[in-house]
Design a protein around this nucleic acid. Sequence first.
DNA 1: CTACCTGCAAACTTTTTGCAGCCCA
DNA 2: TGGGCTGCAAAAAGTTTGCAGGTAG
Lengths: 125, 125
Amino acid sequence: MRRHSKQREMIVNLVKRTKSHPSAEWVYTEVKKKVPNISLGTVYRNLKLLQSKGEVAEISCEGDEFRFDGNTGLHYHITCQRCGKISDVEGYIIKGVENKVSALTGYQITTHCVGFRGICPECLK
Amino acid sequence: MRRHSKQREMIVNLVKRTKSHPSAEWVYTEVKKKVPNISLGTVYRNLKLLQSKGEVAEISCEGDEFRFDGNTGLHYHITCQRCGKISDVEGYIIKGVENKVSALTGYQITTHCVGFRGICPECLK
DNA sequence: CTACCTGCAAACTTTTTGCAGCCCA
DNA sequence: TGGGCTGCAAAAAGTTTGCAGGTAG
Protein backbone atom coordinates (compact mmCIF):
# COMPACT_ATOMS: atom_id res chain seq x y z
CA MET A 1 0.00 0.00 0.00
CA ARG A 2 1.66 3.07 -1.26
CA ARG A 3 0.99 6.47 0.16
CA HIS A 4 3.11 9.02 -1.53
CA SER A 5 3.84 10.23 -4.96
CA LYS A 6 5.44 13.46 -5.94
CA GLN A 7 2.25 14.63 -7.59
CA ARG A 8 0.01 13.82 -4.65
CA GLU A 9 2.34 15.50 -2.22
CA MET A 10 2.46 18.64 -4.30
CA ILE A 11 -1.29 18.81 -4.52
CA VAL A 12 -1.81 18.44 -0.78
CA ASN A 13 0.80 20.99 0.04
CA LEU A 14 -0.53 23.45 -2.45
CA VAL A 15 -4.11 23.22 -1.27
CA LYS A 16 -3.16 23.34 2.40
CA ARG A 17 -0.86 26.27 1.88
CA THR A 18 -2.96 28.47 -0.32
CA LYS A 19 -5.60 30.81 1.00
CA SER A 20 -7.33 31.35 -2.30
CA HIS A 21 -9.82 28.47 -2.21
CA PRO A 22 -8.65 27.02 -5.49
CA SER A 23 -10.62 25.29 -8.19
CA ALA A 24 -9.38 22.05 -9.69
CA GLU A 25 -8.24 23.89 -12.78
CA TRP A 26 -6.20 26.34 -10.73
CA VAL A 27 -4.52 23.55 -8.80
CA TYR A 28 -3.70 21.92 -12.09
CA THR A 29 -1.99 24.91 -13.68
CA GLU A 30 -0.21 25.68 -10.44
CA VAL A 31 1.20 22.19 -9.93
CA LYS A 32 2.08 22.07 -13.60
CA LYS A 33 4.68 24.77 -13.01
CA LYS A 34 6.65 22.33 -10.91
CA VAL A 35 5.62 19.04 -12.50
CA PRO A 36 5.04 20.04 -16.12
CA ASN A 37 3.61 16.77 -17.33
CA ILE A 38 1.05 16.22 -14.62
CA SER A 39 -2.40 15.51 -16.00
CA LEU A 40 -5.70 17.01 -15.06
CA GLY A 41 -7.08 13.56 -14.36
CA THR A 42 -4.52 13.08 -11.63
CA VAL A 43 -5.50 16.35 -10.02
CA TYR A 44 -9.15 15.38 -9.94
CA ARG A 45 -8.38 11.90 -8.68
CA ASN A 46 -6.25 13.24 -5.88
CA LEU A 47 -8.57 16.00 -4.83
CA LYS A 48 -11.34 13.47 -4.58
CA LEU A 49 -9.19 11.10 -2.60
CA LEU A 50 -7.97 13.78 -0.24
CA GLN A 51 -11.48 14.95 0.24
CA SER A 52 -12.67 11.50 1.20
CA LYS A 53 -9.83 11.24 3.68
CA GLY A 54 -10.86 14.57 5.13
CA GLU A 55 -7.56 16.26 4.42
CA VAL A 56 -9.18 18.82 2.26
CA ALA A 57 -12.74 20.12 2.20
CA GLU A 58 -15.07 21.21 -0.49
CA ILE A 59 -16.54 24.64 -0.07
CA SER A 60 -20.32 24.97 0.22
CA CYS A 61 -22.97 22.96 1.91
CA GLU A 62 -24.96 22.24 -1.22
CA GLY A 63 -22.20 20.19 -2.66
CA ASP A 64 -21.86 20.68 -6.38
CA GLU A 65 -19.09 23.11 -5.85
CA PHE A 66 -15.59 22.40 -6.98
CA ARG A 67 -13.44 24.70 -5.01
CA PHE A 68 -11.37 23.35 -2.22
CA ASP A 69 -10.12 24.48 1.10
CA GLY A 70 -7.08 23.17 2.91
CA ASN A 71 -8.47 24.49 6.16
CA THR A 72 -10.92 21.82 7.21
CA GLY A 73 -11.84 23.43 10.50
CA LEU A 74 -15.13 25.28 10.76
CA HIS A 75 -14.95 28.77 9.40
CA TYR A 76 -16.99 30.96 7.11
CA HIS A 77 -16.42 32.40 3.69
CA ILE A 78 -17.04 35.70 2.08
CA THR A 79 -17.17 36.25 -1.67
CA CYS A 80 -16.57 39.58 -3.32
CA GLN A 81 -19.21 40.21 -5.94
CA ARG A 82 -16.96 42.59 -7.82
CA CYS A 83 -13.67 40.71 -8.10
CA GLY A 84 -14.87 37.22 -7.30
CA LYS A 85 -12.31 36.38 -4.67
CA ILE A 86 -13.26 34.16 -1.76
CA SER A 87 -11.78 34.86 1.66
CA ASP A 88 -12.07 33.37 5.10
CA VAL A 89 -13.90 35.17 7.84
CA GLU A 90 -11.55 34.90 10.76
CA GLY A 91 -12.52 34.63 14.36
CA TYR A 92 -16.23 34.38 14.21
CA ILE A 93 -18.39 31.34 14.67
CA ILE A 94 -22.08 31.45 15.39
CA LYS A 95 -22.79 29.39 18.48
CA GLY A 96 -25.74 27.19 19.13
CA VAL A 97 -27.19 27.27 15.63
CA GLU A 98 -26.91 23.57 15.10
CA ASN A 99 -28.87 22.70 18.20
CA LYS A 100 -31.47 25.28 17.39
CA VAL A 101 -31.99 24.05 13.86
CA SER A 102 -31.92 20.46 14.99
CA ALA A 103 -34.77 21.17 17.38
CA LEU A 104 -36.61 23.04 14.69
CA THR A 105 -36.32 20.50 11.89
CA GLY A 106 -35.77 17.14 13.49
CA TYR A 107 -32.59 16.62 11.52
CA GLN A 108 -29.51 15.18 13.07
CA ILE A 109 -27.06 17.87 12.08
CA THR A 110 -23.52 17.15 10.98
CA THR A 111 -22.24 20.58 10.12
CA HIS A 112 -23.24 23.99 8.95
CA CYS A 113 -21.67 26.58 6.75
CA VAL A 114 -22.16 30.25 6.31
CA GLY A 115 -21.34 32.36 3.32
CA PHE A 116 -21.43 36.08 2.84
CA ARG A 117 -21.59 38.14 -0.31
CA GLY A 118 -20.51 41.70 -0.61
CA ILE A 119 -17.84 44.04 -1.85
CA CYS A 120 -14.32 43.78 -0.49
CA PRO A 121 -12.41 46.77 0.87
CA GLU A 122 -10.14 46.92 -2.19
CA CYS A 123 -13.04 47.04 -4.59
CA LEU A 124 -14.80 49.68 -2.46
CA LYS A 125 -11.95 52.14 -2.87
CA MET B 1 -40.69 44.83 -25.91
CA ARG B 2 -42.33 41.52 -25.27
CA ARG B 3 -42.66 40.08 -21.85
CA HIS B 4 -44.43 36.82 -21.98
CA SER B 5 -44.19 33.55 -23.71
CA LYS B 6 -45.85 30.34 -22.80
CA GLN B 7 -42.52 28.73 -22.03
CA ARG B 8 -41.27 31.52 -19.84
CA GLU B 9 -44.47 31.65 -17.90
CA MET B 10 -44.41 27.94 -17.27
CA ILE B 11 -40.86 28.08 -16.03
CA VAL B 12 -41.55 30.92 -13.59
CA ASN B 13 -44.64 29.29 -12.23
CA LEU B 14 -42.96 25.97 -11.83
CA VAL B 15 -39.97 27.32 -9.97
CA LYS B 16 -42.06 29.57 -7.77
CA ARG B 17 -44.47 26.84 -6.95
CA THR B 18 -42.10 23.98 -6.25
CA LYS B 19 -40.44 23.44 -2.92
CA SER B 20 -37.82 21.03 -4.17
CA HIS B 21 -35.11 23.48 -5.19
CA PRO B 22 -34.92 22.21 -8.73
CA SER B 23 -31.98 21.90 -11.03
CA ALA B 24 -32.17 23.14 -14.60
CA GLU B 25 -32.50 19.59 -15.85
CA TRP B 26 -35.44 18.93 -13.55
CA VAL B 27 -37.21 22.08 -14.68
CA TYR B 28 -36.66 21.01 -18.24
CA THR B 29 -38.19 17.55 -17.93
CA GLU B 30 -41.02 18.95 -15.86
CA VAL B 31 -41.96 21.70 -18.28
CA LYS B 32 -41.58 19.25 -21.14
CA LYS B 33 -44.60 17.38 -19.86
CA LYS B 34 -46.75 20.36 -20.75
CA VAL B 35 -44.75 21.81 -23.62
CA PRO B 36 -43.19 18.73 -25.19
CA ASN B 37 -40.96 20.48 -27.68
CA ILE B 38 -39.36 22.98 -25.34
CA SER B 39 -35.61 22.99 -25.55
CA LEU B 40 -33.07 22.88 -22.79
CA GLY B 41 -31.47 26.03 -24.12
CA THR B 42 -34.68 27.92 -23.47
CA VAL B 43 -34.79 26.69 -19.90
CA TYR B 44 -31.27 27.88 -19.23
CA ARG B 45 -31.86 31.18 -20.94
CA ASN B 46 -34.97 31.83 -18.92
CA LEU B 47 -33.56 30.76 -15.60
CA LYS B 48 -30.67 33.09 -16.15
CA LEU B 49 -32.95 35.92 -17.13
CA LEU B 50 -35.28 35.40 -14.19
CA GLN B 51 -32.33 35.25 -11.92
CA SER B 52 -31.00 38.57 -13.14
CA LYS B 53 -34.42 40.10 -12.64
CA GLY B 54 -34.43 38.73 -9.10
CA GLU B 55 -37.55 36.65 -9.58
CA VAL B 56 -35.71 33.48 -8.79
CA ALA B 57 -32.55 32.91 -6.77
CA GLU B 58 -29.66 30.57 -7.09
CA ILE B 59 -28.93 28.53 -4.02
CA SER B 60 -25.55 28.95 -2.37
CA CYS B 61 -23.34 31.92 -1.77
CA GLU B 62 -20.39 30.59 -3.67
CA GLY B 63 -22.27 30.68 -6.88
CA ASP B 64 -21.34 27.74 -9.10
CA GLU B 65 -24.47 26.00 -8.07
CA PHE B 66 -27.30 25.43 -10.50
CA ARG B 67 -30.28 24.80 -8.35
CA PHE B 68 -32.91 27.42 -8.05
CA ASP B 69 -35.30 28.67 -5.50
CA GLY B 70 -38.52 30.49 -6.16
CA ASN B 71 -38.48 31.86 -2.65
CA THR B 72 -36.14 34.82 -2.93
CA GLY B 73 -36.60 35.99 0.64
CA LEU B 74 -33.84 35.23 3.13
CA HIS B 75 -34.04 31.72 4.49
CA TYR B 76 -31.68 28.86 5.10
CA HIS B 77 -31.30 25.44 3.60
CA ILE B 78 -30.65 22.02 4.96
CA THR B 79 -29.41 19.11 2.89
CA CYS B 80 -29.88 15.51 3.84
CA GLN B 81 -26.67 13.62 3.35
CA ARG B 82 -28.47 10.34 2.99
CA CYS B 83 -31.24 11.08 0.48
CA GLY B 84 -29.92 14.30 -0.98
CA LYS B 85 -33.03 16.39 -0.59
CA ILE B 86 -32.76 20.07 0.14
CA SER B 87 -35.32 21.69 2.41
CA ASP B 88 -35.96 25.11 3.78
CA VAL B 89 -35.38 25.89 7.42
CA GLU B 90 -38.49 27.77 8.41
CA GLY B 91 -38.69 30.49 10.97
CA TYR B 92 -35.12 31.04 11.89
CA ILE B 93 -32.85 33.86 10.85
CA ILE B 94 -29.64 34.74 12.58
CA LYS B 95 -29.70 38.38 13.51
CA GLY B 96 -26.88 40.83 13.40
CA VAL B 97 -24.38 38.63 11.61
CA GLU B 98 -24.01 40.91 8.66
CA ASN B 99 -23.06 43.88 10.78
CA LYS B 100 -20.68 41.81 12.80
CA VAL B 101 -18.90 40.39 9.79
CA SER B 102 -18.87 43.75 8.09
CA ALA B 103 -17.06 45.21 11.07
CA LEU B 104 -14.70 42.28 11.13
CA THR B 105 -13.74 42.22 7.47
CA GLY B 106 -14.32 45.69 6.09
CA TYR B 107 -16.64 44.31 3.42
CA GLN B 108 -19.85 45.99 2.51
CA ILE B 109 -22.17 43.06 2.87
CA THR B 110 -25.05 42.36 0.53
CA THR B 111 -26.41 39.12 1.85
CA HIS B 112 -25.53 35.97 3.69
CA CYS B 113 -26.62 32.39 3.43
CA VAL B 114 -26.51 29.49 5.77
CA GLY B 115 -26.57 25.84 4.92
CA PHE B 116 -26.83 22.81 7.14
CA ARG B 117 -25.94 19.21 6.47
CA GLY B 118 -27.34 16.29 8.33
CA ILE B 119 -29.76 13.43 8.23
CA CYS B 120 -33.44 14.08 7.82
CA PRO B 121 -36.08 12.56 10.12
CA GLU B 122 -37.25 10.11 7.45
CA CYS B 123 -33.76 8.77 6.88
CA LEU B 124 -33.15 8.51 10.62
CA LYS B 125 -36.02 6.10 11.09
C1' DC C 1 6.70 -8.59 -7.52
C1' DT C 2 2.49 -6.25 -7.08
C1' DA C 3 -0.42 -2.82 -5.92
C1' DC C 4 -1.13 1.64 -6.50
C1' DC C 5 -0.45 5.59 -9.20
C1' DT C 6 0.32 8.23 -13.36
C1' DG C 7 -0.31 10.35 -18.20
C1' DC C 8 -3.11 10.33 -21.99
C1' DA C 9 -7.16 10.46 -24.40
C1' DA C 10 -11.77 9.47 -25.00
C1' DA C 11 -16.29 9.71 -22.94
C1' DC C 12 -19.73 12.16 -20.30
C1' DT C 13 -22.29 15.85 -18.26
C1' DT C 14 -23.63 20.34 -17.87
C1' DT C 15 -24.04 24.93 -19.72
C1' DT C 16 -23.56 28.35 -23.49
C1' DT C 17 -24.07 30.09 -28.11
C1' DG C 18 -25.14 30.87 -33.18
C1' DC C 19 -28.61 30.67 -36.33
C1' DA C 20 -32.82 30.75 -38.82
C1' DG C 21 -37.49 31.11 -38.28
C1' DC C 22 -41.68 32.38 -35.41
C1' DC C 23 -44.76 35.30 -32.91
C1' DC C 24 -46.70 39.01 -30.26
C1' DA C 25 -47.16 44.03 -29.07
C1' DT D 1 -43.20 44.77 -38.73
C1' DG D 2 -39.45 44.48 -35.54
C1' DG D 3 -37.37 42.76 -31.70
C1' DG D 4 -37.39 39.49 -28.63
C1' DC D 5 -38.06 34.50 -28.12
C1' DT D 6 -37.82 29.76 -29.54
C1' DG D 7 -35.98 25.07 -31.13
C1' DC D 8 -32.15 22.88 -32.72
C1' DA D 9 -27.64 21.61 -32.87
C1' DA D 10 -22.97 22.47 -32.32
C1' DA D 11 -19.51 24.23 -29.15
C1' DA D 12 -17.45 24.99 -24.81
C1' DA D 13 -16.46 23.95 -20.12
C1' DG D 14 -15.92 20.87 -16.45
C1' DT D 15 -15.40 16.12 -14.70
C1' DT D 16 -14.84 11.08 -15.01
C1' DT D 17 -12.94 6.81 -16.68
C1' DG D 18 -10.32 2.99 -19.20
C1' DC D 19 -6.02 1.63 -20.37
C1' DA D 20 -1.19 0.59 -20.64
C1' DG D 21 2.92 1.46 -18.55
C1' DG D 22 5.80 3.17 -14.44
C1' DT D 23 7.27 3.00 -9.59
C1' DA D 24 7.54 2.75 -4.59
C1' DG D 25 7.33 -0.54 -0.87
